[in-house]
Design a protein around this nucleic acid. Structure first.
Lengths: 149, 149
DNA sequence: CTATAAGTTCAAGTAAGCTTCAATTCAACC
DNA sequence: GGTTGAATTGAAGCTTACTTGAACTTATAG
């Protein structure tokens, strides 16, 4: 556990299941060298990468999006803290949008539902521009996507 | 479109696809009578119910949880605004928890990642009690669930 | 009346993000 | 050097929330 780590060690230190780590590697989000009988050896730097992945997921990025972000890291040298910071700059808007939606929802608990105006044409939620952010599944139209036709 | 509505009308007015409405009915979240050749007829009140469902999804409830909530509505009479308000009271904590997590994440963009301390043992994210809320999928352990073993 | 649009059911498919299983090999400890 | 514990792979399975398709039946406009 000095220079490089087994998948089990990485799993224990990150809290991410080995199966998930293999899945991430398969998706190209992390990578490893092989030792012994094909056993994975991860560099310690993978922990930061994994932290970034979990962090990004909480923000609401999909693994595909996270892959794109990670692809923006320099491939010729070890990423600096500046590199990492650059990646997450764009998240701010996303987080802010989500926070304000939740605040509107929270207000809606008192206003919309509380006053009994929870109707499709009046509720603030039915304003399409207010529902642009998409976190999770659910009906698309109300959540900002254009109707199917 | 006076007294009752077809599934198409409900779909158009709510922005929720017909297939989703059938799915919701199958799950017991909404219900309808039948007319003609088994065509569904929804009462206007279904629109409020659907609004509640979409609203609740945005807050982060699963359809199962939403079903439980809806089950708390009186079955012997039409729900009043007070009934609806009662249902959504409990959401507040949930919303607040999620908002504060996002605010921590947002701060982490500057602090954790910005200062380069994004590491598994130091980052605020690695504090299990801070990651109790679960929205969406993703690795469970870091997100608050106990490890499998 | 006759297109065409809209409705029905049931089963299967989709997408994301993993987990589980089976069969097998390897490493570590006493 | 034998017994556990940990790794490997590939394929299949799971959960949530729907969508799509097939095969029909009904309503509606002209």
């Amino acid at each position: 556990m000095g220079e490089s780590m087994t998948i089990g060690e990485v799993s224990r230190r990150s809290g991410v299941a080995s199966s998930a780590l293999r899945f991430y590697e398969q998706r190209g989000l992390i990578s490893s060298e092989r030792a012994g009988a094909g056993h994975r050896r991860f560099p310690r730097s993978v922990l930061r990468r994994i932290a970034f992945i979990v962090f990004a997921q909480r923000v609401g990025l999909t693994l595909d999006e996270i892959g794109l972000e990670l692809g923006r890291l320099p491939s010729d040298r070890a990423p600096t803290r500046r590199d990492w910071a650059r990646l997450s700059r764009g998240w701010t808007n996303r987080i802010d949008a989500r926070i304000s939606e939740l605040q509107r929802l929270r207000a809606g608990l008192d206003v919309c539902i509380g006053c009994g105006c929870l109707s499709l044409d009046r509720c603030a939620l039915s304003n399409p521009s207010d529902r642009a952010a998409r976190f999770g599944t659910g009906p698309r139209y109300w959540l900002g996507d254009a109707p199917a036709r």
